[in-house]
Amino acid sequence: MPELDVSTTVNGRPVEMRLPTRLTLADFVRDRLGLTGTKVSCGMQVCGACTVLVDGDPVSACSYLACDVDGREVLTVEGLADGGELTPVQRAFVDCSALQCGFCTPGFVMAATALLRDEPHPTEEQIAHHLDGNLCRCTGYLPIVEAVLKASRAGGIDE
């Protein structure tokens, strides 16, 4: 099975591994690194549960080659809360009860984090446009919009 050497940084930690070319980024972080916060659901890039950031950009880890993070930086949900301190996005999702089963939550948190990096004070419409590719089957979305607005007021991705 074809393989390549991959040298990457995951949540600030350098990782060097030889990986099968067919391995997805989701399987890489989940199975090889034990970072199971990233979830796989639709497998077709429409649900967003597997959203992680590669060099700051949101990608669908289920449909992204692990080898393509060679030389790049990966941020998964486990890399957010530094030393146990929740980020404003995570804090707002807790405070607004913007989750139920929680399976979509890491993807939403990552997507919202990327949004607030680009646009620290988004309108409700911008939030909806940005998160239209993340599905949640439990909440009915209103608490999620509320949480992103709250995180934005709380200073977005920074303190």
């Binding site: 890039q45 429409v46 967003g48 959203t51 950009d57 949101p58 990608v59 669908s60 992204y64 997507a111 990327a114 949004l115 940005h130 998160l131 239209d132 590719g133 993340n134």
Partner: peptide
Amino acid sequence: LGNVRVRAT
């Protein structure tokens, strides 16, 4: 088109 991840990639 698509969604934010598709547009980024």
